[in-house]
């Protein structure tokens, strides 16, 4: 199936259900992005795109971003639309499952954090905290395809 993706981070291999996440996100993307009035600002891509991250830092950045979405973003994305909430739950539980797998890499020291990934993640947090929490969470959720594209 085109479903799963084996992400290789140096010595670490993580099987990720990308297709399921993309199906869930695609179903609500327009709805979520319509709730984000400030389209000129980006949480993940300002000032630099994720694609500029060094390959040796990919594992650490991915680990940070899973934690970011699970710990900070999804809980502030509740909407009045039951269908959207169900899809957000689907994505959040998939992220939680992947976060667990990546934690194993991190614990086995196969997911080093260099200066670049630390700086990049600080910038993402600064972008996030520069907005009110609901706007920041909705914007981050709306940028999920940026993360998925970068991961693939």
């Amino acid at each position: 199936t085109a479903g799963n993706k084996i992400l290789h981070f140096g010595a670490c291999r993580v099987s990720v259900s990308m297709a399921e996440i993309r199906v869930g996100f695609t179903a609500i993307k327009a709805n979520i992005q319509a709730r984000d009035p400030i389209r000129t600002l980006s949480i993940l891509s300002y000032p630099h795109s994720l694609h500029k991250v060094n390959s040796s830092d990919r594992c650490c950045i991915t680990h940070h971003l899973f934690n970011f979405y699970v710990d900070k973003v999804f809980k502030h994305c509740k909407t009045e639309d039951s269908y959207v909430n169900r899809k957000i739950s689907s994505i959040a539980n998939s992220f939680l499952s992947m976060k667990r797998k990546l934690e194993q890499c991190h614990e086995q020291n196969r997911c080093e954090c260099g200066r670049e990934s630390t700086e990049k993640f600080k910038q993402i947090l600064a972008n996030y905290e520069g907005l009110n929490v609901t706007s920041a969470a909705m914007k981050s959720l709306g940028e999920l395809d940026i993360l998925l594209d970068w991961m693939e």
Partner: peptide, 29 residues
Amino acid sequence: YANESWIPISECSLITATACNITEDISAT
């Protein structure tokens, strides 16, 4: 992470059947 919240399945709200297809919502391991 979300205060033990519960999410309704709209296709199985106020139904008379005694079974519900939950496949679409059980989408993570």
